Amino acid sequence: MFELIPFGKRREDAFGQLVKSFHDAFNDDVFAPFKGSMMSFKTDIKESEQAYLVEAELPGFQKEDIEISYADPYLTIKAVRKEDHSVEDTDQHIVRKERRYGEYVRRFYVQQIAEDQISALLKDGVLKLEIPKQPNSGKKRIQIRDDI
């Protein structure tokens, strides 16, 4: 007599167990650098009457690795990571070599800023940008009259 479990269901269970065992075998911290390279950096944005204040978390980056540019109306922060680590034995045979390359880019839509007055400071892995707003361009409110 046949089992009470349909044929397809038995195959799904066996396949599910196989996939789970592969997932368990390869789900290790060895792949952590690959997972981290897909993440974007975190930012905090504040606005005052005079400026926008941006704080971006960029731990491990040097100021030479960071590029800030403004092409109206987008402010772009780009950080490039290039790391090479190798451990060799006495005969110069490579025992372990790790490389990590990545490019992190964030773009922000901002208008009416004084782009020539933007200032940046990198300290303790935090990039701080002060983006001054352009002074009000003398916009005048036009009053609507009741009669012409």
Rank of each mutant, 00 (worst) to 15 (best):
Q111R: 09
I66S: 05
V95E: 08
A25C: 03
N136Y: 08
I131E: 11
E3R: 14
P135F: 01
S86M: 10
K20W: 08
D146V: 07
A114P: 02
L129W: 07
A56P: 02
N27Y: 08
Q92K: 15
D13R: 15
S137V: 06
G102L: 08
F2W: 10
Y104Q: 11
L121Q: 14
F15M: 14
T76H: 10
Y101P: 00
I5N: 06
E88L: 15
N27E: 10
S48D: 01
D89G: 04
E103C: 05
M1V: 12
K97G: 02
D146I: 04
I118L: 13
A56H: 05
H85C: 01
L58F: 07
L18K: 13
V105Y: 08
E88P: 03
E130T: 15
R99F: 09
I77G: 09
D116R: 09
N27L: 08
S48P: 00
A56I: 03
R81A: 09
G36C: 04
D72E: 12
V80Q: 12
R81K: 14
A120I: 03
L75R: 13
Y104F: 14
G102Y: 06
R100E: 06
I131R: 03
Q111E: 15
I94L: 05
D84P: 00
A14S: 14
I66C: 04
N27H: 09
H23L: 11
D72H: 11
G138A: 12
I142D: 04
F41S: 04
L53W: 01
K97W: 02
D84S: 09
K20I: 09
M1T: 11
K20E: 15
T90P: 13
V19F: 14
I68T: 04
E98T: 05
E98M: 06
E12S: 15
D13T: 14
D147L: 07
P59M: 00
M39V: 02
Y104C: 05
E130A: 11
L75C: 12
I77H: 08
K35Y: 10
S40Y: 05
T43L: 01
E55S: 04
A25L: 12
Y109C: 01
Q143H: 08
L58C: 05
T43D: 01
V87G: 02
D28G: 01
V105W: 08
Y52E: 05
D146G: 07
F22E: 04
T90M: 14
K123V: 08
K35T: 05
L53E: 03
V80I: 14
H85K: 07
Y101G: 09
D116V: 01
R145P: 03
V30P: 00
E98L: 07
I45M: 05
N136E: 13
D13Y: 15
G16A: 15
K35M: 02
P33K: 02
R145V: 07
R106Y: 11
P59I: 00
I66W: 06
L53K: 02
S40L: 03
Q112R: 10
R11Y: 15
V54L: 13
I94V: 14
D13W: 15
G16K: 14
F31W: 07
P6W: 13
E88W: 13
I131C: 10
M39Q: 10
Q112W: 00
V54A: 00
R96V: 06
F15V: 15
F2L: 10
